[in-house]
């Protein structure tokens, strides 16, 4: 089919569509109100709750930092505080960037570019988050046990026999899930960027 024929077919189609009844005002406003309610419900609660928990732990360690006597526990506590602040902040920032792509201001080519890049950034943050999560698994236990006076528990071999394999198994399963998702999203976003070139 030649382009001219396509254009004439399209014009014919457009003409017929224009002849259809006008959508009713009540239906239009109902669509708008329902969508608005739906968006309010769609705020990312898990991310917000997760971040509050992280910040809460960071504050807890900061307040009770002076009570830590062992040098390595002080070091672990510092690392834990840093991770608990950096990780949720980076995660929330990347989500915000992804959600703030301007449908109303940018041209489609510009928006496609921003959208793909912010998606890649989001999943990179998730990937680093995974590594930092594994570090956190180790660094959080010694200082928290010293602060709660349960250091004795950590000296028992059974604790490490359960905690380390259990923690590692969780991290491996979780990492595999994140990695698979990461690979797919990055590939799709990179394809989107290639299409723009």
């Amino acid at each position: 089919m030649e382009l001219e024929e396509m254009q004439s077919l399209w014009a014919d189609l457009s003409q017929k569509i224009e002849k259809q009844d006008k959508i009713q005002k009540e239906l239009l406003m109902e669509i708008t109100k329902q969508k608005f309610r739906n968006k309010l419900n769609g705020i990312r609660l898990p991310e917000i709750i997760g971040s509050i928990i992280c910040y809460g732990y960071a504050i807890y360690f900061m307040i009770r930092f002076s009570e830590l006597e062992l040098w390595y526990n002080q070091l672990f506590a510092l690392l834990t505080i840093a991770i608990m602040i950096v990780l949720p902040t980076a995660s929330l920032a990347s989500i915000k960037a992804m959600r703030s792509v301007k449908i109303h201001g940018d041209a489609p080519a510009e928006m496609l570019d921003k959208f793909a890049k912010s998606k890649i950034r989001f999943w990179k943050v998730q990937k680093y988050g995974m590594v930092l999560g594994a570090v956190l698994l180790i660094t959080i236990m010694p200082p928290i046990n010293e602060l709660q006076g349960t250091s004795e528990m950590m000296s028992r071999p059974i604790f490490w026999m359960l905690y380390i394999p259990g923690g590692l198994l969780f991290m491996v399963l979780f990492s595999r899930w994140v990695y698979n998702r990461y690979k797919r999203v990055i590939l799709a976003s990179e394809n989107m960027l290639t299409e723009l070139e």
Binding site: I23, L27, N38, H104, M111, F115
Partner: peptide
Amino acid sequence: RVGMNTAITHLNKSKKKPLLVSLDHSF
């Protein structure tokens, strides 16, 4: 622009969701 941008972002995010309002309009 709004129409095309919405289509691009919406279809990228879209997962099967129930329709909010039923559109039985003739067009």
